[in-house]
Amino acid sequence: MVIDAAPQPNKVRWGELEEDDTEDLDFLLPPPQVIGPDDNGIKKVIEYKFNDDGDKVKITTTTRVRKLANARLSKRAVERRSWPKFGDAIHEDVGSRLTMVSTEEILIERPRAHGSKAEETNTVGGDSLAQLTKGGAVLMVCRTCGKKGDHWTSRCPYKDLAPQPEAFIDKPTASDPTAAASVTKGAYVPPSMRAGADRSSGTDMRRRNEENAVRVSNLSEDTHEADLRELFSRFGQLTRVYVAIDHKTGLSRGFGYVNFVNREDAERAISKLNGYGYDSLILQVEWSTPRPN
């Protein structure tokens, strides 16, 4: 926070006088005071002003001045800092805004989830997924490009190139008179409910998330998905690990879900880990109950 403690210039323009409703009582106020920064870098700025009701208000702003620990600059670099501007930079308008700080927070995007190793998933136990694939049944079908056995949908190299799902456009076809009729009525029909839509897919997706799901609660705030994966993967193969994160604080909300490939593994995990002391808290591990809706 920067507070300008410099005294106001004495020259008062008439235009400003007209606009100022707060009268010219400012001279009654004590001048602003700046205390510090002290040894801890605490700086206090005390200002006085009149509030809307005409009462005198004292505003104390406490700020901490920090020196950057690693700001080691060579003598030359410090000198360069005070070099006068040259070239086009001399007459640079204040409003030109050549240098701006991005309004967007840019993160280094990891190609896969933090801490989870892609290869790790098929090292434990019977490696059932891999066996299934080898057995001839092609499980790995990319939903984006339709390629079989090459990659999962989430890893599809053509993901970006895939056309937008056209479900919203809802093109009525000649062979589908009901759909066309519903469009003309103007009532919204969700894509999954439309005639000709693959009704199974939507419900399928939901069920998949609830399959062999184990709810883990009483987690400490420092527990991440990678930790849960480490803890649970010794019981069998996992399909999903999820820790609920509070969107505001970015901290864990203290519970999460783990989905197992095999139900037996999940059962074993529950019997072993329920009541297990983890990171100074006692874990509560149970079957996840599907949502009432």
Binding site: R81, F86, T99
Partner: peptide
């Protein structure tokens, strides 16, 4: 020293910036 950043572009003036805050120091 890492305190200056020089940039060249297809426009005709190379530019130097302060590398810490991105302020323009000058053009050539």
């Amino acid at each position: 020293d890492g305190d200056l950043l020089f940039s060249c572009a297809k426009d005709h003036t190379p530019t130097v910036w302060f590398a810490d805050n991105g302020e323009r120091l000058g053009t050539y």
